[in-house]
């Protein structure tokens, strides 16, 4: 389980996170929803210790992040995190060199699934294909948790469909996933849990099937209530 307890953070005078608490369980897809600039990406970075927090606590499987944690949790930012000059195969070698959890077989499998060519240079890929390679770099790690920042934003419809397919496959099964989005429509029925964020605070955290069952509301219905109410 990934737990955030009362996490706060300031950028200069601007309070970006004002006491954020929520949990993301293994085997579930948790979706952080909020318009751009409400602190979604900051939360992801904070979990990965890529930006310091001012107060509060972040636990991964009950312990604070340490170097070993990067074999248990990975982050797929919204832009690829490899040198653009690398070929896909070189990027894979880099990952294999540094991560024990890198699963080359799975990486190759994903490469096939996405119809990509490992001799292609990252800088020469289309936007959609770059996003796919970026995704592979995270998904081919045998980690417990995967954080994804806006995996669907700014890419073509077919790439979106292919990426959505990943969520219903064994690649995600049994892992814990946190994804951020400002656009829930595409993935509403894919997620287990929604965390609504606004202005650095969590407005609501709920199980999507439960809210449909008990209140007959869609995620968008709840968002409408929470954000407009």
């Amino acid at each position: 389980m990934i737990e955030l307890k009362n996490v706060t953070k300031k950028f200069g005078k601007k309070q970006v996170l004002k006491g954020v608490s929520f949990t993301a369980e293994k085997g579930k897809i948790t979706c952080l929803i909020g318009i751009n600039g409400v602190g979604k990406t900051t939360i992801m970075k904070a979990i990965m210790a890529l930006t310091p927090i001012d107060s509060g606590e972040i636990l991964i499987n009950g312990e604070t992040l340490n170097k070993g944690s990067y074999e248990k949790v990975t982050f797929i930012p919204d832009a690829i995190t490899m040198l653009p000059s690398m070929k896909i195969s070189e990027a894979f070698t880099f990952m294999a060199d540094f991560y024990n959890s890198w699963n080359m077989e799975r990486a190759k499998e994903l490469l096939n699934f996405f119809n990509l060519n490992e001799t292609d240079r990252i800088s020469e890929l289309s936007k959609g294909n770059t996003a796919k390679v970026n995704l592979i770099l995270g998904l081919a790690l045998d980690v417990d948790y995967i954080l994804m920042d806006e995996p669907f934003s700014g890419i073509d419809i077919f790439s979106r469909e292919q990426i959505a397919d990943v969520f219903t496959s064994h690649l995600i099964e049994d892992r814990g996933v946190i994804i951020t989005t400002h656009e829930i429509n595409d993935i509403e029925h894919l997620i287990d849990k929604a965390v609504l964020l606004d202005n650095g605070v969590i407005l609501k955290e709920f199980d999507t099937e439960e809210i449909r069952e008990t209140e007959g509301k869609s995620v968008v219905d709840v968002m409408r209530e929470v954000y407009r109410g």
Partner: peptide, 16 residues
């Protein structure tokens, strides 16, 4: 797993 894949749903939902 196959069901989740065919229907494009979360494996947890298929399980349920």
């Amino acid at each position: 797993r196959e069901l989740a894949n065919q229907l494009k749903i979360n494996p947890n939902t298929a399980q349920r």
